[in-house]
């Protein structure tokens, strides 16, 4: 009887713990092997590798976690995968050479930067219909939508500007000059600030989203590295808005920045040529895609330590996490 009771107790405990500990899925786009690596955020193991279109780059998961959107840059389309089966459902018309895109909170509109023809394509994913083509600066790269959905930001590589665009009328509101080759734009979770990374300039510009004035220009003096080795690219913020992670490209480091004091808390050595990153929904881990060492580094967010390297496909670039 005692054994049975113990067994029941164990089973009950197991059931209790299974609920909240449900693992998230992390999706990595591998630019050169043309596939997607799926990682389990609990066991930190690679679950499967799925074939994608040519040169997969930007990647996002729908708000309900059911769909995975992947830019197939050399096929001029956005592929939609069913996250439950990882089967390709359809390919959406994205305009030429899509690299990065933003998504609205409802998950029905994508805002895609088309590097080759200086425009942003606004795509209704339900109807698979282009809603608008917005002309922007030459070689658009970074895309961000404010949390309230009102303002769209696009960065232009050639004019070195962050363009603020009204997300309803698609009229230009303002342009803010940043350093050379702006690569990625990120709104803080409260929508108050916009962070823009400049790959060649080696800086991150923090802009007040309301006044569009520069609040702070961050530089990254990693001891022992030359300035040209520091190339900020990917950005991610914790939900409380207190920490922003900056991927520093060939510096092989991720900077953890205090978003209130702008103090750099730590430079974490990751893999080679770190591009983009994603946090797990519980914000326990940060995953980084390392383009030259063909792996993903798992960073423990609490201790800011790299705890694991997972080999993935060739030239990993984009990272997205399922919402839960």
């Amino acid at each position: 009887m005692t054994t049975l009771r113990n067994a029941l107790r164990l089973a009950l405990l197991a059931a209790l713990f299974a609920g909240p500990a449900e693992a998230a899925r992390i999706y990595i786009t591998n630019e050169k092997s043309n596939d997607i690596t799926v990682i389990d955020s609990d066991s930190l193991a690679v679950l499967q590798t799925v074939k994608a279109g040519r040169r997969p780059r930007g990647v996002r998961v729908s708000p309900d976690g059911k769909l995975l959107y992947v830019c197939a840059s050399d096929e001029d389309g956005i592929q939609v995968f069913d996250t439950a089966t990882m089967k390709l459902l359809r390919t959406l018309d994205s305009g030429p050479d899509p690299e990065q895109f933003a998504m609205n909170a409802a998950g029905d509109l994508l805002y895609i930067a088309n590097e080759d023809n200086a425009q942003v394509t606004v795509l209704d994913v339900v109807k698979n219909q282009i809603v608008a083509n917005v002309p922007v600066g030459v070689e658009p790269e970074g895309m961000a939508l404010s949390p309230d959905g009102a303002v769209l930001v696009n960065t232009s590589e050639t004019t070195n500007m962050a363009h603020f665009i009204d997300a309803k009328t698609f009229k230009r509101i303002d342009n803010v000059l940043v350093d050379k080759r702006p690569r990625y734009a990120l709104f803080t979770p409260d929508g108050g600030k916009l962070w823009v990374s400049s790959e060649v300039g080696g800086t991150v510009s923090v802009i007040d989203a309301r006044t569009r004035q520069l609040v702070k220009k961050l530089r990254f003096d990693v001891p022992g590295l030359t300035a040209e080795e520091v190339q900020p690219v990917g950005l991610r913020a914790t939900r409380d808005g207190k920490t922003v992670f900056v991927a520093l490209g060939p510096a092989n480091r991720v900077a953890a920045v205090d978003a209130e004091t702008f103090e750099i808390r730590k430079y974490i050595l990751v893999g080679q040529r770190v591009w983009h990153m994603a946090l797990t929904p519980d914000e326990k881990y940060l995953f980084t895609a390392n383009g030259n060492s063909n792996d993903v580094t798992v960073i423990d967010v609490a201790s800011l330590k790299a705890i694991k390297s997972l080999p993935v496909g060739q030239a990993p670039l984009g990272v997205a996490s399922s919402p839960n």
Binding site: V222, T226, E228, E229, N252
Partner: peptide, 11 residues
């Protein structure tokens, strides 16, 4: 680029 920096690959 110049020589590979020690700090870029070594912690």
């Amino acid at each position: 680029t110049g020589a590979i920096s020690r700090a870029a690959i070594w912690a």
